[in-house]
């Protein structure tokens, strides 16, 4: 089975803060990680390979340093990696990103049976690139996949919903976005770590993918950021301390005054 996993390198949003004066992100010193949900997509790919054989190719689009995310994925067990990177791709929103990634997948020598994405990327939280790529490749797509099992014609998939789950059958080839509950990424092996350090990872740029120019980068992005600001904070809070019984009596009194009890 040929499996492609799309992984994004993101700043660890636990450690990002905002400078309330300038409204800028303090990104200095913030480590870059593989988008946590993409780890679940990668693990799902590795498990499918363990069980059914095949090859796992990881693809990432981003600046040159995103190659580190790909090396990490190789150390966990991916077979191949490709970096999509070009100045001209910069500033892409999810529309342009989906388009560009779909071109890279089309260029693969062997077309995948299955393409996996994380549920969403934690920097933007859009969850749009998976469905976007799937459409550009004209593949059926299911989001929020927790378990994927190959069948004769395609896959049987457990899809998480608001209040439970659904079982779907979907034809091959297909694309899925994977939820956190699916699994936990295995540890990297020392041997693979060494190999990953030295692995040759090809970079595909504008000339390799030959995109329609108005579909890529900033120009190919329908959405534009018009303003960035710090989230508002609540000002009129009341802190109660002291004996629990008194605190609660006071709280209930205040909630009554607010007409919420």
């Amino acid at each position: 089975m040929n499996i492609v996993v799309c992984i994004k390198q993101v700043p660890d949003s636990d450690k990002v803060t905002i400078d309330r004066e300038t409204n800028r992100l303090n990104r200095a010193g913030v480590p870059s990680i593989i988008n946590p949900f993409d780890e679940n997509a990668l693990e799902m790919a590795l498990q499918l390979k363990d069980k059914h054989g095949g090859k796992v190719t990881v693809i990432s689009m981003g600046p040159p340093q995103a190659v580190e995310a790909l090396r990490t994925a190789l150390s966990h067990g991916a077979d191949d990696a490709i970096l999509i990177s070009d100045r001209k791709f910069g500033g892409a929103d999810t529309w342009a990103t989906s388009y560009t990634i779909s071109l890279a997948i089309k260029k693969l020598e062997v077309q995948p049976d299955i393409i996996l994405f994380g549920k969403q990327a934690i920097d933007g939280d859009t969850a749009q690139v998976g469905p976007g790529v799937a459409h550009f490749l004209d593949l059926p797509m299911l989001t929020y996949a927790k378990a994927v099992e190959p069948t004769d014609a395609g896959f049987k998939v457990e899809k998480v919903t608001e209040d439970g789950y659904e079982i779907w059958e979907i034809d091959k080839p297909a694309a899925f976005t994977v939820v956190k509950e699916a699994n936990q990424l295995r540890m990297p092996s020392l041997k693979k770590k060494m190999a990953a350090k030295k692995a040759e990872i090809p970079t595909w740029g504008f000339d390799d993918l030959n995109p329609i120019e108005e579909n890529i980068g900033l120009a190919g992005s329908p959405t534009k950021v018009s303003k960035i600001f710090a989230p508002p904070v609540k000002l009129n809070k009341e802190i109660l301390s002291g004996e629990p019984a008194e605190m609660i009596t006071e709280l209930i009194q205040k909630l009554k005054e607010r007409n919420v009890l």
């Binding site: 929103d93 999810t94 529309w95 989906s98 388009y99 933007g124 939280d125 859009t126 969850a127 749009q128 690139v129 998976g130 469905p131 976007g132 799937a134 459409h135 550009f136 797509m141 299911l142 989001t143 929020y144 899809k159 998480v160 919903t161 608001e162 992005s221 329908p222 959405t223």
Partner: peptide, 22 residues
């Protein structure tokens, strides 16, 4: 919803529209 967040991004690329999530 789980439906809207699958449907909207698919429609967005189909009709060449921008989409802002959440």
């Amino acid at each position: 919803t789980t439906i809207g967040r699958s449907l909207a991004p698919t429609v967005a690329v189909m009709v060449d529209a921008g989409l802002t999530a959440d």
